[in-house]
């Protein structure tokens, strides 16, 4: 399946785009996605931390990704 990942802040700059597409297997998890992202964008490993969100909720490493989910990469937040 093809998934799209929204990116903000420093991760938008690392990706060079506010949205990227990746091809993943149908039963892929959040940890699979992190592995793939870090292979393609090694600068992610230099961040203090980052999370992934699925459909506007923070996701856990074991969560499964489905086609058409809204996925976003969330670098360390700094609002307020």
């Amino acid at each position: 399946m093809k998934i799209n990942i929204l990116a903000f802040g420093v991760t938008r700059e690392i990706f060079g785009s506010s949205e990227i597409s990746l091809e993943m297997t149908n039963d892929a998890t959040i940890s699979n996605l992190k592995y793939l992202l870090e292979q393609q964008y090694p600068r992610l490993k230099q961040l203090s931390s980052y999370m992934l969100a699925v459909n506007n909720e923070y996701a856990l490493p074991g969560d499964t990704i489905h086609e058409r989910d809204e996925i976003a990469i969330i670098p360390p937040v700094s609002g307020g």
Partner: peptide, 11 residues
């Protein structure tokens, strides 16, 4: 909590 969880970023 806003500073810890709300997805807002500042440059």
């Amino acid at each position: 909590i806003l500073k810890q969880t709300v997805p807002i970023w500042k440059k």
